[in-house]
């Protein structure tokens, strides 16, 4: 049943969040209006503030309050290496896990024709001007190891090779500490194919 008035509007609006159906939206709306009105006001104000202030970094397309994000503006980073990832969360993951000192480019998506994501939707014009700047020597493609991630990596590699920049792709295979017996067949097949001289 459609709830009338502003309450109905609120429930409908909450459903824009991933994983929120009509029931969850109703529970959230009641929680905010009945039990935590201060929290609700804070949420509304912060949401508006975030929408006003947070945009995309002009260089790497990650979410940023400034025209250039902290990483891109940091003079201590190696500007000759560029790592291309699918989402801002991966920038954090790679920085923390690998100690990578270069710069990033965030695609905010991946090529997936059936989801309407084609080359035109990925803002590759921004990437192109980065590549043309002449300071990048190596591009590391860190897209996910799904079929769409592979297609994205291949598309980008063809584009990047035109300007004579070295392109590499992150390796994939058996997880560290994993016993082969329990590794799934697809991963094992890839690991076997991508074996290295030892």
């Amino acid at each position: 049943m459609q709830v009338p008035g502003v309450l109905g509007q609120l429930m409908h609006a909450l459903r824009c969040l991933p994983g929120v159906g009509p029931r969850s939206a109703q529970r959230m709306a009641f929680q905010l209006l009945l039990r935590d009105r201060d929290g609700a006001r804070r949420l509304a104000e912060t949401l508006l503030l975030a929408l006003d202030r947070i945009g995309h970094c002009g260089d790497c397309r990650t979410l940023s309050e400034d025209p250039r994000c902290r990483l891109c503006a940091d003079p201590g980073r190696d500007r000759s290496e560029l790592c291309i990832v699918e989402s801002p969360a991966e920038v954090m993951a790679i920085t923390q896990a690998t100690g990578f000192r270069g710069l990033f480019f965030v695609l905010n998506g991946k090529l997936s024709p059936l989801d309407g994501m084609g080359p035109a939707q990925l803002r590759l014009d921004v990437l192109e001007s980065r590549l043309k700047s002449g300071e990048i020597r190596e591009v590391i493609l860190a897209t996910s190891t799904t079929v769409e991630g592979e297609a994205t990596a291949h598309y980008l590699s063809q584009m990047i090779r035109q300007v004579g920049i070295e392109v590499s792709r992150i390796a994939y295979g058996v997880p560290f500490g994993g016993e082969l017996e329990y590794v799934d067949g697809t991963t094992l097949a890839h690991a076997f194919k991508g074996r290295q001289t030892f």
């Binding site: 024709p113 059936l114 043309k132 700047s133 002449g134 297609a151 584009m159 035109q162 004579g164």
Partner: peptide, 18 residues
Amino acid sequence: PLGSRALFQTRTITSPPA
């Protein structure tokens, strides 16, 4: 149009890096 067809057209970079 089929979206996958766009993949076959490599984005051409017009001028080489400065």
